[in-house]
Amino acid sequence: MEVTRVLIVDDDAMVRTGLRMVLSADPTIQVVGEATNGQEALDLTRNDPVDVVMMDLQMPVMDGVTATRQLRRRPDPPAVLILTTFHLDHYVLEALAGGALGYLLKETAPQEIARAVHMAAAGDSVFSAQVTERLVSHISSRESDPQTHEARRRLARLTERELEVAEGIAAGSSNASIAADMFMSEATVKTHVSRILSKTAAENRVQVALLVYQARRTS
């Protein structure tokens, strides 16, 4: 039985204890350590690799955004799941742009937390399309925003079909759902997704979704 190794990073001891209890109930998940800030997370994973890091955002010494960026620059980096208490928080956007595979609200149901860990370990994105779209809109809706123009420029590299797939990703659809909606095989969708990631220089599906939402901004 393959076990997913998890590091919990949060400066709140109660949050760490609660997450450890939730994850330890799943025999295929092993919590291998806890850290109280981003620097500790970097130190703990330097010589003892893990599969998934569950990362709080606002912590002393080093915040979760900075730690996420540094972790994702490493060779064979772990997947990072952001833990947040807020639906609308610009730190979440920064962490997603920095390579996090997704985010969880701290009040997420236990079974969903374990499911999200398994999804992240498999390389799948974990995010709520509705919350992410509201988050982007909350941060800025200005037509002159440089990020809006940059997002549109990167998406302009896509073919019409690839753009339709990107819209499906932004809606939170799986490859299977996109394939059914667009009357194509999953293999074809996977090919489109690979080309989208390459053409837009996005690291994962969440970053593709962010580009789509940023490109939609209007004055």
Rank of each mutant, 00 (worst) to 15 (best):
I139V: 15
V15T: 09
V131M: 15
M184V: 11
T4G: 01
Q111P: 04
E160R: 11
V15S: 03
D43G: 03
V212G: 03
S144Y: 06
E112L: 10
A67E: 00
V131Q: 13
G64R: 00
G172W: 14
T159E: 13
Q70N: 09
V6K: 01
T17E: 12
S24M: 10
E203H: 14
A151Q: 04
T45A: 03
L83F: 13
R216M: 14
M21N: 14
V31A: 10
A122I: 14
R154F: 04
R161K: 11
S219P: 07
V165I: 11
H87D: 11
T218E: 15
H87Y: 05
T68I: 06
R217M: 10
P77W: 09
M55V: 00
R46A: 08
P49W: 01
V131G: 07
P146L: 06
G99S: 08
G168Q: 04
T45E: 01
R153A: 12
S174A: 12
L19W: 01
L7I: 08
A209K: 02
Q39K: 08
L211A: 00
D43L: 03
D12M: 04
D63H: 09
A180N: 11
R205M: 12
R142Y: 05
E186G: 07
L93N: 08
L7N: 03
E162T: 06
A100K: 01
L211I: 08
T36G: 06
S141W: 09
V80R: 02
Q214Y: 10
A79L: 07
E40N: 04
R5P: 04
G98K: 00
A100Q: 01
E150S: 10
A35M: 02
A187P: 04
E186C: 07
G168H: 04
R5T: 15
Q111R: 13
E186F: 04
Y213V: 03
D10N: 12
A79T: 10
I29M: 05
R134Y: 13
M119D: 10
E162A: 06
L155Q: 06
E107I: 00
D12P: 02
N37A: 00
V22Y: 04
R157D: 03
R46K: 12
R161T: 12
L155M: 14
M1R: 13
F127Y: 15
S198E: 15
G18A: 11
Q130E: 12
S137R: 07
V193E: 05
A209S: 14
R205T: 09
A129F: 05
S125F: 02
S219Y: 09
L197C: 07
K190F: 03
V3Q: 13
